[in-house]
Nucleic acid binder design. Structure first.
Length: 154
DNA sequence: GCCAACGTTGGC
DNA sequence: GCCAACGTTGGC
């Protein structure tokens, strides 16, 4: 089955892992997602080659800072099996892993941060889960018209 | 640091 | 299956 490329937005706290970290490393396993909806998007929705807005959350200027790409299919997040990891999940097993991740590849940094404030005030983006109050989802789809619109803001 | 919003857990 | 308690997210 084929389908057109989908687009996504993934949040990361820059203190933990920033766009500059991704640029330096080139590719990174997106571990630590412990929300079922976010997991389902990675496991069931993402395909290699899908484009991603890299978003900085919980920081001085929250917003979109770069573009990345899905680099692998989803596979079990190893941190769930590691008792020393803060993402350890005793209820998960290797036979029946609960949490999945994809690896994400750096494409580019935007010339500037497209701030959350700016996105919130944009009439073209009112449907985005990102700008809805109280939304805490860290992995979410972006409609292709929204994707194109946001690119024009850079 | 505060706190609203939301998801998860667990007693019943 | 309800729902109170609790923990987390993330903007401000």
């Amino acid at each position: 089955m084929t389908r057109s490329t989908q687009h996504w937005l993934m949040k990361s706290e820059p203190d933990a892992f920033s766009i500059d970290d991704l640029k330096r490393k080139g590719q990174e396993a997106w571990d630590g997602v412990r929300n079922y909806q976010a997991r389902n998007f990675m496991r069931d929705g993402m395909r290699v080659g899908d484009k991603i807005f890299f978003y900085h959350s919980n920081c001085e200027q929250p917003g979109i800072v770069g573009i990345a790409e899905v680099a692998t299919d989803a596979y079990p997040d190893p941190s769930q099996f590691d008792p020393k990891s803060k993402y350890f999940d005793a209820a998960s097993s290797r036979d029946n892993p609960r949490w999945m991740l994809v690896e994400v590849k750096f494409i580019k940094k935007l010339k500037r941060t497209i701030s959350l404030r700016e996105l919130q005030g944009d009439p073209a983006l009112v449907e985005m889960p990102l700008v809805r109050k109280g939304n805490r989802l860290s992995v979410m789809p972006v409609a292709s018209n929204e994707w194109r619109h946001i690119l024009t803001l850079e």
